[in-house]
Amino acid sequence: MSDKKNWPLWEIFVRSKNGLEHRHFGSLHAADAEMALENARDVYTRRNEGVSIWVVESKNITASNPEHNGEMFEPAQDKVYRHPTFYDLPDEVKHM
């Protein structure tokens, strides 16, 4: 079999313990999802770092472009009224 077919790249997400979200740990190559899970177990959880693993083939992830960060994220900057500190309350109201 000479025509080379490389194992695709997978992104690995690990939940370190119940109650926490899955977090991106890194990536690895594997022939299919099942092998990606097995490899992820060996590469990223050799010391009990996880209780659950997700694998996603990297090509299926759509990422935002940092060059468009302006139009993407700046609109939130002038919306201070979304934060509690925007509202004036008398000091007597201690917790709200």
Binding site: M1, K5, W7, A31, D32, M35
Partner: peptide
């Protein structure tokens, strides 16, 4: 051959 076989198996599945 192991890498190729794994890929072929994945495609077949």
């Amino acid at each position: 051959w192991v890498r190729d076989a794994a890929m072929a198996h994945a495609e077949k599945k």
